[in-house]
């Protein structure tokens, strides 16, 4: 279970990236943020954003057509 959950289900590009970025700005170092998105583009966009920003994706899975990313700050 992540410290913060961001619900971006139903939202299209670029909102999942904007939402996770805003949540990460608020999070403190060491906290984990879970993003749940339904936009298929997130599969490529979120790992690309995280890699660029130097955040590591601790866990990533798909369930019921929703994409979950658990990212550590």
């Amino acid at each position: 279970m992540a410290d913060i959950t961001v619900d971006a289900r139903g939202l299209q590009c670029p909102m999942p990236v904007l939402k996770i970025s805003q949540a990460m700005n608020k999070a403190t170092a060491g906290q984990t943020v879970e993003l749940v998105a339904s936009d298929r583009g997130s599969l490529s966009d979120i790992p690309a954003w995280a890699a660029d920003m130097g955040h590591s994706i601790k866990e990533q899975f798909e369930s019921d057509g929703e994409y979950h990313f658990i990212i550590e700050k």
Partner: peptide, 11 residues
């Protein structure tokens, strides 16, 4: 505006 906001999300 999509690219501008995403750029901001990239810091």
């Amino acid at each position: 505006l999509i690219l501008a906001t995403t750029g901001a999300a990239y810091g």
